[in-house]
């Protein structure tokens, strides 16, 4: 009997570990397959490519994770990205005459400020006026997009400052060693900071507590409204940062950039194991989810699979990830 019990415990433990690593395992399996099926998948250059491609969605997904952890949702990320991008572009463009060209660093700060303000408006309305996040950010999706068109008059902003473009196209080269593209460095840095905030600072505890049970959090003395306000402002900031990177990468402030990017961001968060009802989910899962989506997109491109199948594939993975959750917890119907 005791033997039986301990071996059962062993196998439970093993299963639990397997469960924790499920996305990582899926990712590894896909990478193994791709490296066998294509010639160049497993090259440093390609892996760096994939990371660079996911850095924009990665930034959006970090903000989205914070928001979904509180039980909310942000549908306006793509529009805030576009707005932050064109504001920055307008200040580093020689062709955009309405505002002066300024130092690229200051221009980026202005763009980030613009995105943060939009996110803060989301947060303010949601926390103070009790508009549901879905409705508020749906409204912001339209408002921010419209503001982007008004600001740009519907035209792409081109002829951007060469130094500025480095942030999207250049490499981080400490002591002359070419290490990683700037977008990747910025994404990983943002991820690291977000991780520290979420798991090593009280703010992170409060985010989980608000999503776990807002009423209980309030009675425990947490300023729930402030936490909600902050996560939306953070999302706005990260969206604008993603917009800056995308602008520098494509060498133009495109008013139609980021359309329907919210779907990929939500998908990454969900695949990463974060519960849509809030309070549950690891940030590292989001990182893996982001990379998984990127690897699949890139891999299917290289395998010459039609983009239609890519969409089906992505959908299956999202639903599959959530279904796994269901099977794992079937004892608790």
């Amino acid at each position: 009997m005791p033997d039986d019990a301990s071996s059962m415990q062993e196998s439970n433990k093993f299963r639990a570990i397997l469960w924790e690593l499920r996305i990582a395992i899926a990712l590894v399996l896909i990478c193994v397959y791709l490296s066998m099926a294509t010639d160049h998948f497993l090259t440093t250059r390609n892996l760096i490519n994939v990371l660079r491609q996911v850095s924009v969605n990665g930034l959006l997904s970090i903000g989205m994770t914070f928001i979904i952890l509180t039980g909310g949702i942000d549908l306006s990320v793509g529009s805030m990205l576009a707005f932050g991008g064109v504001v920055t572009a307008s200040f580093v463009s020689n062709a955009y005459k309405d505002v002066p060209s300024i130092n690229p660093f200051h221009a980026i700060c202005l763009g980030l400020l613009a995105g943060t303000v939009l996110g803060a408006v989301n947060g303010l309305v949601i926390s103070k006026m009790r508009v549901t996040p879905f409705i508020m950010t749906l409204g912001m999706l339209s408002i921010a997009r419209g503001m982007t068109y008004i600001y740009t008059n519907g035209m792409p902003i081109t002829d951007l400052d060469k130094t500025f473009l480095q942030i999207g196209q250049g490499f981080f080269e400490p002591w002359g060693v070419r290490l990683l593209p700037w977008p990747v460095v910025i994404f990983l840095l943002a991820f690291a900071i977000a991780w520290v905030v979420l798991y090593r600072m009280k703010f992170g505890r409060y985010v989980y507590a608000v999503g776990g049970n807002a009423r209980s959090a309030r009675i425990s003395g947490i300023n729930v409204g402030f936490i909600i306000f902050m996560v939306y402002a953070i999302s706005g900031f990260l969206c604008a940062l993603a917009g800056v990177l995308l602008t520098a990468r494509t060498s133009a402030g495109l008013p139609q950039a980021g359309v329907s990017y919210e779907l990929d961001a939500i998908a990454a968060v969900v695949i990463g194991g974060t519960s849509m009802t809030g309070g549950k989910g690891p940030l590292i899962g989001t990182l893996l989810g982001v990379i998984l989506i990127g690897v699949i997109n890139s891999g299917l491109d290289q395998l010459s699979v039609s983009s239609y199948y890519q969409q089906v594939c992505k959908g299956l993975i999202i639903v599959g990830a959530v279904m796994l959750d269901y099977f794992q917890s079937d004892g608790e119907r």
Binding site: A209, G211, G212, A217, S275, G279, K280
Partner: peptide, 11 residues
């Protein structure tokens, strides 16, 4: 209103 059931004992 008391507990967040999906969080740990510690949290």
């Amino acid at each position: 209103s008391g507990l967040a059931l999906i969080l740990s004992v510690k949290d």
